[in-house]
Write a protein that binds this DNA or RNA. Structure first.
Length: 831
DNA sequence: GGCTCTCGGGG
DNA sequence: GTGTACGAGAGCC
């Protein structure tokens, strides 16, 4: 049995597909599949001579095949399947074939070879594979099992728990001059922290460095060893050695895709070191950086690099997605933090203890975070047949598509192509009526319960058979909601007029139904497990049902995604139409039958309160209501959050304080680095006064205090500094924004033109002209004694951050800026 | 109002 | 690697 974590294919000779992982006995091993060929499909006019395909160089064989039509439940498409020698010949061949007379279209010619193989052979890249009985041998020094394509198709496999792998994490600290970027000036790596855990529970934490003294301390109860090396190069060598000895299957990082791995590789290259030794087996393609991508991806050959930044973004709801925030949210731990300047300072002064502890904590908690969050990625990788590192990086839309590609292949359905650039743009302009957003009751409310439809859209898709291949069928009559005896049995979506087949099940409903049913099975099994007795098994089943759920939930969004292969505007439009129908029904039931008041609602959520009731009464009433609704309608309405207080500002913008002490904000965040610290801080304090202390007047006083400080010139330029990054040289900009003009001023001052990647810290100073005319680098502004432009900071920073919030509480602009003292009493705004 | 540009995570 | 995110917000023109 092999637990595989990684797939690639050999570039020399035949393109063998190699799955690398670990055997049950703990040894690393590989499954090598021989004889699977790259291919694509060609649709041609009648009378087209397939010999013309056969004659092209790189083509091995041409087969006549039939596939099911992607947009019709009945139709079949006749195609030529063109099998070729190597993956890399496909792009060239695809273009040549398109130009042949009589060729209408080329299909499935853009599917990377390992993904194609994982789908067709039905060997999930991250799965426990029964390889016993296969021919044994070795591949690049690893014990290997050999199968031909036909044998591979028969292999049994299943998902496995992360605990059965060797998992590790690492984090690097580097010397970076403030105001520079790590892209341009690669300062030395000063410390590498490394943490691991084996299936039998063995753990280790290390900090490798090249200054200071050997030391030992504990982080979160784990012994941590500081290993001091002779030099940076020796430290890198030592890290690589230890890493190889631990031999992790999964490597967690936090933003390793764009920082740790590329940096490590660049630094190692500069020092003449070989990071290829990090690979399993060691080789030239050790650390694979894909630099061309808009978002860079980095991999370690033979191991699964799981960058938890993506996982956090997809699975957590945080205001900011820093490691610190993610760790706080998931593990409830306050991590030791160091500012960039403090890292430099500590290293230069030799004050290293805090630095090492900080570094060790980063790796340790990254590992802990991975142990908590990554199981769902393994499940999604399994469900989509995507390699684990890809599944981690992909959006839910992409995951939905790859699951569809996998199912389509095995159901004999031809996959549509991705849209051209023009088609993509056209789709993006295409508008359709989306979900309903109820008008919020603006102002502050107490004791509000948020309920939402966990699976409204998937249920709608299945129940109403909404799918690209059932849209506008020839076989069913049009029956509207008004005409139908049972409105939920209408063939036409309410209000939008699109008809869907009711005789034959569509591809997407079948796909979604399968996910929903499997999820139900896991939930049933979950009920049989006692979480106290078998916590691991319980957690695993729970994660599994979640993976099915999130995937099922992705298909509505997928059909409306402009880049989708199975894009179907009418489908998406019909799903939202039914969604509006159901949420209105539910709202009516809440109000008419349960006396609940809807203070806000968006898409699949309702914010409810029971006038005159306390929190526990409200919750009880809501629970009764939920049970009733779920029995009566084909929906699943759930209790989502309970708010002590919540402030509705406008549609899509609100902030609340939950009964478990969390501040939740939507659409109000001002956390980007192109906002001045003073604006971010003021907003945070204002929300805290209102939501936690229930004291809007104190919030107003916070604002007045800040405005007063600004006007009196007490505010330090650092509080006003906005940072922004140059993406090209200043002279190359068409439109010279404030950061460009600030950079040009800095260039004149320093005498060198800044490189792309330079980070500019600037303030807006008093004077004539546009914002850009007044943008000065902080150092220069300080040197020349420039005064900050108070009006700019008030109008463009402080007020945008707080004005809407305060207005929702009934304060006028005059009151907010301190020109008027008349205040409405809070009671008027407590509904 | 359209176009251009930047944000995110990491040090 | 059979490839090239994304959606929002600010300021310029």
């Amino acid at each position: 049995m092999l637990r595989s974590v990684w797939v690639d294919y050999s570039r020399k000779g035949s393109p063998d597909v190699v799955f690398v992982g670990r055997r049950r006995d703990g040894e690393p091993a590989a499954l090598v599949v021989k004889g699977f060929r790259p291919y694509f499909y060609v649709e041609a006019e009648e009378g087209f001579d397939p010999d013309r395909l056969e004659g092209l160089s790189g083509v091995v064989e041409v087969r006549e095949v039939e596939r099911r039509h992607p947009y019709s439940v009945e139709e079949r498409v006749s195609l030529y399947q063109v099998l070729v020698t190597y993956p890399k010949v496909v792009p060239r061949l695809r273009e040549r074939v398109k130009e042949l007379d009589g060729v209408r279209e080329v299909y499935e010619a853009d599917i990377p070879f390992v993904r194609r193989a994982a789908i067709d052979l039905n060997v999930p890249p991250a799965s426990e594979i029964d390889v016993d009985g296969l021919r044994e041998g070795s591949w690049s020094g690893l014990p290997a099992y050999f199968a031909d394509a036909e044998e591979a198709r028969e292999l049994e496999h299943r998902p496995y728990p992360l605990d059965e792998l060797v998992v590790a994490s690492f984090d690097i600290e580097v010397l970076a001059e403030p105001g520079t970027t790590t892209e341009g000036s690669a300062g030395p790596v000063i410390a590498i922290s490394f943490a691991y855990r084996t299936p039998d529970g063995e753990r280790g934490n290390y900090v490798f460095t090249w200054k200071g003294e050997e030391a030992e301390f504990t982080v979160d109860g784990v012994e941590t060893e500081v290993v001091v090396c002779e030099s940076e190069a020796a430290m890198l060598r030592e890290f690589v050695e230890r890493f190889r000895r631990v031999d992790p299957d999964v490597v967690f990082t936090y933003n390793g895709d764009e920082f740790d791995l590329p940096y490590l590789k660049r630094r190692a290259d500069r020092l003449g070191l070989d990071v290829g030794r990090l690979a399993r087996p060691p080789g030239k393609r050790g650390v694979i950086i894909k630099p061309g991508a808009a978002r860079r991806a980095s991999d370690i050959f033979g191991r699964a690099h799981v960058d938890l930044y993506h996982t956090a973004q997809k699975n957590l709801k945080l205001e900011r997605f820093t490691l610190e925030e993610a760790v706080r949210d998931v593990l409830g731990v306050e991590k030791e933090e160091l500012e960039l300047a403090e890292i430099n300072e500590a290293w230069k002064r030799g004050d290293l203890e805090r630095l090492f502890r900080y570094s060790a904590e980063d790796a340790h908690y990254t590992l802990e975070l991975g142990l908590e969050l990554a199981q769902v990625e393994l499940e999604l990788s399994y469900l989509t047949r995507l390699p684990l590192p890809d599944a981690v990086r992909f959006s839910f839309g992409q995951l939905a598509e790859w699951r569809a590609l996998y199912r389509a292949h095995h159901e004999g359905i031809l996959a549509p192509n991705k849209p051209s650039r023009d088609e993509y743009e056209r789709r993006r302009r295409e508008e359709y009526k989306g979900a309903i957003v109820f008008e919020p009751k603006i102002g502050l409310h107490e004791h509000v319960v948020c309920v939402d439809f966990a699976s409204l859209y998937p249920n709608v898709m299945v129940h109403h058979n909404i799918s690209p291949d059932t849209f506008d069928c020839d076989c069913c009559p049009e029956v509207t909601v008004e005409e139908a005896d049972d409105p939920t049995e209408a063939t036409v979506a309410p209000g939008v007029g699109h008809k869907f087949c009711r005789r034959r099940e569509g591809f997407f409903p079948r796909l979604v139904k399968r996910l929903i049913e499997r999820r139900r099975e896991y939930k049933a099994r979950l009920r049989e497990v006692d979480p106290d007795e078998e916590p691991e098994r319980y957690r695993l089943l729970d994660v599994r049902q979640q993976a099915y759920k999130v995937l099922a939930n992705s298909y509505y969004g997928y059909m409306g995604w402009a880049n989708a292969r199975w894009y179907c505007r009418e489908c998406a439009e019909s799903v939202t139409a039914w969604g509006r129908y159901y949420i209105r029904e539910v709202r009516r039931i809440a109000e008419e039958e349960y006396g609940l008041r809807v203070v806000y609602g968006d898409t699949d959520s309702l914010f409810l309160k029971l006038p005159g009731a306390d929190l526990s009464e409200t919750i009880d009433r809501v629970k009764e209501f939920l049970e009733d609704v779920n029995r009566r309608l084909p929906v699943e309405l759930e209790l989502e959050d309970v708010y002590e207080r919540i402030l509705f500002v406008t549609k899509k913008k609100y902030a609340g304080y939950t009964t478990d002490g969390k501040i939740v904000t939507k659409g109000l965040e001002a956390v980007r680095r192109d906002w001045a610290p003073i604006a971010r801080e003021t907003q945070r304090r204002v929300l805290e006064r209102i939501l936690k202390d229930n004291d809007p007047d104190a919030a107003l006083k916070e604002i007045h205090r800040v405005l007063e400080r600004l006007r009196s010139g007490e505010v330090d330029l650092d509080e006003l500094a906005v940072t922004s990054q140059l993406t090209k040289k200043p002279s190359e900009y068409v439109q010279k924004g404030p950061h460009v003009r600030a950079a040009q001023r800095l260039a004149r001052y320093l005498g060198t033109e800044p490189e792309p990647g330079t980070i500019v810290r600037y303030v807006i100073v008093r004077g004539p002209g546009s914002v850009s005319d007044k943008a000065y680098p902080v150092e220069l502004a300080r040197e020349e004694g420039k005064e900050p432009d108070i009006d700019y900071y008030i109008e463009h920073q402080i007020l945008p951050a707080v004005e809407r919030i305060m207005k929702a509480l009934g304060y006028s602009r005059g009151q907010i800026v301190g020109e008027s003292t008349a205040q409405k009493t809070l009671d008027q705004f407590l509904g």
